[in-house]
Write a protein that binds this DNA or RNA. Structure first.
Lengths: 124, 124
DNA sequence: TTGACATATTCCGGCATGGGCATATATTGC
DNA sequence: GCAATATATGCCCATGCCGGAATATGTCAA
């Protein structure tokens, strides 16, 4: 089997750079009609519509009809799983710790911190 | 053209659930040999090796040889772009506001306080 | 209605992808 | 050397992806 369907997983939906571009534009400029996105991103209209279709099925965007245009809105909370997942690893780069030091720190925190934290890292 | 190569884009690499599983296991249990991952994830060994290959090409994991095994280590900082990108939208769910409520609230506070507020709505 | 405009959908082709299986390549120990 | 273990790789196949072009649907105005 190939990759999991892009229309069923948020992680898959945002795997496409173009779709992330669309998301970024919607976040920065607010709700946008398809035509605006076509102009902004300089993509063929069918491509934009298709990408929006994927994003809509996953719930990343929602649509509202206004005249003969359709306004697409970013539903940012659908991206929360991505943030939560990535945030899990935040500590790894926030403090320059690898796992060994992490364990040491956790152990140290059990008996309260007396000494200042050793600043040491293993850079590539 | 199909999707961008999974070996060139972090977002694409983490689009596979199995690969996220591998990442999670490495984060939770520390460096792991391929055989351990095979047992933990209950996947065929070639599948694990292939996924690890993708993750390695993108820089999400690194390898160290130990005896006849190969220890894979999570290079979490390679996931920082994902976190940064997703964090951009954090405010949308942190304050439980969508764009409409955001405007409404801003209008209400203007009306109540009668004080000029910095208008920073549409800034490209 | 007709026509202009905005967007969606359908077809197609090329192709990377991931799974399964067999096999190749280390590395170690005898 | 040989065998055993640990991992990687090559091959095949089915699936679904993305882009492109044409076309269909929908909406407004006159």
């Amino acid at each position: 089997m190939p990759r999991a369907a892009t229309t069923s997983d948020v992680f898959n939906a945002i795997a496409e750079p173009r779709r992330r571009d669309i998301i970024d534009v919607l976040a920065r400029n607010g709700d946008q009609a398809v035509g605006s996105l076509v102009v902004t991103l300089r993509l063929p209209q069918p491509a934009v519509s298709k990408h929006l279709g994927v994003l809509r099925k996953v719930g990343i965007v929602s649509v509202t009809q206004r005249g003969q245009q359709r306004l697409y809105r970013l539903e940012a909370k659908s991206l929360q799983p991505v943030h939560s997942w990535a945030k899990t690893f935040e500590r790894y780069w926030t403090q320059q710790l690898d796992r060994i030091k992490l364990r040491a720190e956790r152990t140290a925190s059990e008996r309260a911190a007396h000494a200042p934290k050793p600043a040491k890292k293993s850079a590539p």
